[in-house]
């Protein structure tokens, strides 16, 4: 068995600050791939910002905001092969947009309409998980099952810092290591579980240190740096595909939006810190990086934004044009072969 070293504590970064910290680059990412990442982030950002507006207009229900998490989501999802499966938490509700899902589908989910359901096999994306960490074992089971079948598909599972306190995270991580499951455990460490700060969640200095206890590598990466996330995920996937099992990736960011639209974070967060973090948010950092590199122009940026806005506009229109759900849906799919008394109530 390969030796597992203590987790890396240095936070990996690729994107510089245009000042003292120099820009790096990721091998194998050409200009087109760099712009794909940019467009993916813009699409997610636009989805998120429009959703908050739609919520304020009463057009979607309570919504889990992911503003500032786009680098973690796009950087990791674009590192996957098409065959790889994604296991999202509710924070990654719109991750399907990066695999061809329409905004209409995701918006419908947040509108409480069953048109928001999808076939996981069609997108290789499991259903959105609402409880915390209970989907970690699903991703592990999927990856383990694929390995047993001799397939090369891996799994990527997203969860937050609070999820590492859950038993399901522990059981899933342990199973992953024992079964050498080709899975990437991606912890979106945004420092908050609703109002509970990381310092009240754990006495561990670094969440990545938990990895060594399971016998798997742990790495820490700047979650505001899409290229660093992409690179760390790619390395973890290469390791998984080579048969070496799971990796724990701790992506550090700071949640500078409410947990959900129903949350009032002014009761608990540090407004000055939020202000600073917002100035350093991930899309702006990547935008400036690409411009320093000469890859991004005003025209391309505008085009990405316009395209995303257009998709949202038609997405919400399509979602709102759907007829009310057929009451039959309540009964239609709970069982393949339902009990005869299903409709007695």
């Amino acid at each position: 068995m390969a030796q597992v070293l203590p987790a890396e504590h240095d936070v990996r970064r690729i994107i510089g600050d245009g000042d003292g910290v120099a820009d790096g680059e990721v091998e194998g990412l050409d200009d087109a791939a760099l712009l794909d990442l940019y467009r993916a982030m813009v699409l997610l950002r636009t989805y998120d910002e429009r959703s908050v507006v739609y919520h304020s207009q009463g057009r979607v229900g309570t919504y889990a905001i992911f503003w500032g998490h786009e680098a973690i989501q796009a950087g990791s999802a674009l590192a996957l092969a098409d065959e790889d499966w994604i296991f999202p938490s509710y924070r990654e509700s719109a991750i399907g947009l990066l695999r061809g899902m329409t905004p209409e589908t995701v918006l419908s989910w947040w509108r409480g309409h069953p048109a928001g359901w999808w076939n996981p096999r069609e997108f290789r994306i499991a259903s959105i998980t609402v409880p915390i960490a209970t989907h970690v074992p699903h991703a592990v089971g999927y990856a383990w099952g694929a390995r047993l079948k001799g397939e090369s598909a891996c799994a990527l599972v997203y969860f937050g810092d609070g999820a590492t306190s859950e038993g399901a995270f522990h059981e899933g991580a342990n199973f992953a290591a024992v079964m050498r499951a080709p899975v990437v455990l991606l912890c979106n460490n945004n420092q908050w579980a609703i109002s509970t700060p990381l310092s009240a969640q754990t006495r561990a200095e670094f969440l990545a240190d938990k990895a060594a206890g399971y016998g798997m590598p742990g790495v820490r990466v700047d979650g505001g740096d899409v290229l660093a996330v992409y690179q760390a995920t790619s390395e973890a996937l290469a390791r998984a595909r080579a048969g070496h099992g799971p990796t724990f990736v701790e992506a550090l960011t700071y949640r500078c939006a409410p947990h959900v639209t129903a949350d009032d974070p002014t009761a608990y967060w540090d407004a000055q810190r939020v202000e600073r973090e917002r100035e350093n948010e991930c899309l702006g950092r990547y935008d400036r990086y690409l411009r320093r590199l000469g890859v991004l122009s005003d025209e391309l940026a505008e085009d990405a934004r316009d395209d995303a806005l257009e998709r949202m506009k038609s997405g919400i229109a399509a979602a709102e044009a759907l007829p009310p759900p057929d009451p039959e849906v309540v009964f239609a799919s709970a069982y393949v072969d339902p009990p005869p008394t299903l409709r007695e109530g």
């Binding site: 209970t134 074992p137 699903h138 999927y142 059981e171």
Partner: peptide
């Protein structure tokens, strides 16, 4: 919980 949780994923595979 890990047994049943991974079984969900195994069924998906």
């Amino acid at each position: 919980a890990g047994i049943l949780g991974t079984a969900v994923g195994l069924a998906m595979a």
